[in-house]
Amino acid sequence: MARIVMDDLHKVYPGGVKAVTGISLDIADGEMIVLVGPSGCGKSTLLRMVAGLETITGGTLSIGDRVVNTLEPADRDIAMVFQNYALYPHMTVYNNLAYGLRNQGVAKPEIERRVQEAAAMLQIGDYLQRKPRALSGGQRQRVAMGRALVREPSAFLFDEPLSNLDAKLRVQMRVEIRQLQKRLGTTSLYVTHDQLEALTLADRLVVLNAGRIEQVGTPMELYQRPETLFVAGFIGSPAMNMIEMGYLRDRGAAPSTLPAGTDLVGMRPDDMLLSAPAEPHLSLSGRVMLLEPAGAESHIYVSLDGNDQPITVRIPGLPTMQEGAAITLHVPLGALHPFNTASGRRVSG
């Protein structure tokens, strides 16, 4: 029903800023799509174009079976959760939730029923008669969610809804949003710059960079097979290590299995092993610069012999070596990501 299709969408702001340059995306009914990318890459702009808050300067956008390019926000049957919540400060929580329904001319008993239902779902039933300024950040966030829920729209749009919450609350709300979305089965478009939030929430992830799509895929696909250098660097924390092919050749460690044209090799910090595996692998030696225990896991910063390039290694538990000690890292050949610097893309072969 509420499939959202973007076909070559463009946005040029009046001042001439090209914020979105040719985005095509087909979102299935009930899917949770997360738009992720660095600040200023055009995520909000794209979301607001879907909402109808920004004009579309090129391409077509359809929601359901309708082309909605020129429809008013109210006529697109969508609901949006804003970063600063945008609750109406002069209305009680109840009226905040009921406002949209009243505008649609929903009957009073039905409004009452839907508001109570949403309030129960979000555990804000006790605050219905309060004004927003008498609520905590987390409660406001729930009210903002509730305002979107009661409308029973065909799509939810979220613009960094959790970025104003503290870390603990953010994790909790993230889980709740995901559960709610799965239960309601409503198509959702979620914008964030936080890659962890993106990985955990998304059915499919869309990585944006400078107004265009870098890659679309499930979180696992993007993590395991980044198609561009940008995605490789953006997804995953700590970030992927990049080692030049020339260095490997000089050290006699260049594997013959990599496709032609590879000049940069990516290795995930978790794929760098301290003991040699049975499968084919390459080995690199260096010196431990810094140990960083982080609870259940630890990060080892290694400077490679010969060029002092810093490498991050992630191991479970606590490290047993000393800072300054010599270390040899082993990487299975299957875990290497071959890239070409000139094209910025993965070399397939």
Binding site: E72, F82, G100
Partner: peptide, 14 residues
């Protein structure tokens, strides 16, 4: 705040 006006327009207010 502009976002209040935007929220209201999404909420169906002309």
């Amino acid at each position: 705040p502009q976002s209040l006006i935007e929220a209201a327009s999404i909420d169906g207010a002309g």
